[in-house]
Design a protein around this nucleic acid. Structure first.
Length: 421
DNA sequence: TCTGGGGTCCTAGGACCC
DNA sequence: TCTGGGGTCCTAGGACCC
């Protein structure tokens, strides 16, 4: 019998902040999204105060201050590094590890089914805690969907003490019959509403739904989900990272942009960053989309969404080519008289650089590629934005707010914590 | 004043072809 | 006057995830 585990870090971003700043332990903490816009991680204390996922910080500011909630800007360099350490701590406890998101991994535990899997999972949790201080919960089940559900059960019900194993029929039925269907992995708002109209409100009812009806209501996606709830695996733990299909660099601005030149500067930076990302993954892109839009939350203000898709021929990872394409797109889509609050550059049709189809007229690709390598080197050694094209400029006055960012404790030598005697 | 960023998958429908 | 049947490919948009 296959056993799949899901290990998930509790309040991951908050726990990362706490790992290096013990004054945050025991007090309510919220980590804000880019631009200090929304709450994207909350400590248990903050959850208890009613702070919800995605709450706009500026709308709940009063409540945060009244209760002394500490707000931290997000620090993805730190979180990425902590993730690497968590995965390293987990590896001894599973034959396969699939990193699912920054704070969750699926584990193939089939090789350990002879043992007490709950004790095994607890050993893993202790190892993660020792190596990183991060608290975790583990769910175990015969399929990924059930492992996810088990994990959620382990988190919300103290009876499980951090580890829920749903391989046992009786326990599984008990939990599924009480589990809200809208909290099932893969059931979002739209699907939940349709299910509710059929009287389906629990995971147990969804499991017992007719397959054909599930397909009719939510396509093959929902049909597979029902199968997984029944213990029939529709997807396995995948170790090899799938070839990525697209990538994006998008940002909201700290304040609105109204002139073309400033927008160009921002978009130039996104294009350059996109090129860096592309090269670091060893990929080339065949298509670039650039977009910019006004604040859609302000219904009473004039709205505009500009966007252009351009094909890149030959396919490229050259930042200056991306930049040129992005500029053409912005010029074509630009309209005066709007206050733009967000823009981005997206790349599609990604292929490994080695498999890039050749074209007849290519120019000196070799030389340009050496230039890109030199630029990446300069920017990694002397800091991002050391070598930039003129369009990008150095002003970056649209830059996002990030007022309470913690230091790069683990990844920048000048910012490692110092312990004085 | 202030509402994130980055992904995946699926389907319907249009364009095009024979 | 008559107005098929089937196939592929591409794209936009919806839904979902963390």
């Amino acid at each position: 019998m296959t056993a799949i585990g899901l290990i998930d870090c509790n309040n991951f971003y908050v726990s990362c902040e706490r790992a290096f700043d013990p004054t945050l332990v025991g007090v309510p903490v919220v980590v804000a999204s880019n631009n200090d816009g929304c709450a994207i991680a909350r400590s248990n204390e903050a959850k208890a105060l009613g702070v919800r996922m995605g709450d706009p910080i500026h709308l709940i500011r009063d409540r945060l201050e009244k209760h002394g909630v500490v707000v931290r800007s997000s620090n993805y360099t730190l979180y990425g590094d902590m993730q690497r350490r968590v995965v390293a701590a987990v590896e001894d406890f599973a034959s396969e590890v699939e990193i699912y998101s920054i704070d969750e991994s699926f584990l193939d535990l089939t090789a350990f089914v002879g043992r007490d899997l709950v004790a095994h999972a607890n050993g893993m949790r202790r190892q993660v805690q020792r190596w990183t201080t991060i608290p975790t919960c583990v769910g175990i089940g015969p399929t990924k969907t059930l492992a996810k559900l088990a994990n959620a059960a382990a988190k919300r019900n103290p009876i499980f003490d951090g580890v829920a194993d749903l391989r046992d029929d009786t326990i599984r039925h008990f939990v599924l019959d009480r589990f809200p269907v809208n909290d099932v992995w893969g059931v979002g708002r739209a699907t939940a509403a349709k299910l509710a109209s059929l009287g389906i409100t629990t995971a147990g009812q969804l499991r017992d739904m007719q397959m054909r009806q599930a397909r009719g209501l939510g396509t093959v996606v929902l049909e597979r989900l029902v199968a997984e709830l029944r213990g029939v695996a529709a997807s396995a733990v995948e170790v090899v990272e799938p070839q990525r299909k697209g990538m994006a660099v998008t940002r909201s601005f700290g304040r609105p942009i109204e002139d073309l030149e400033a927008l160009m500067g921002a978009v130039a930076q996104f294009a350059m960053r996109a090129g860096e990302k592309l090269r670091s993954h060893g990929l080339v892109a065949g298509q670039l989309t650039v977009f910019f839009h006004t604040n859609r939350h302000k219904r009473d203000r004039p709205q505009h969404h500009g966007s252009r898709r351009l094909s890149l021929q030959p396919m490229t990872d050259d930042s200056l080519e991306l930049l040129a394409a992005a500029r053409r797109g912005v010029e074509a889509a630009w309209r005066d008289g709007f206050a733009y609050t967000k823009a981005g550059v997206m790349l599609d049709d990604l292929v490994a650089a080695g498999q890039r189809p050749r074209t007849l007229f290519e120019g000196d690709v070799e030389r340009r590629s050496r230039l890109m390598m030199a630029m990446d080197e300069v920017n990694s050694r002397f800091g991002r934005f050391t070598a930039v094209p003129a369009t990008q400029g150095f002003k970056r006055e649209w830059k996002a707010r990030s007022e309470n960012r913690s230091p790069a404790w683990t990844t920048r030598i000048g910012e490692v914590p110092v312990i004085s005697a």
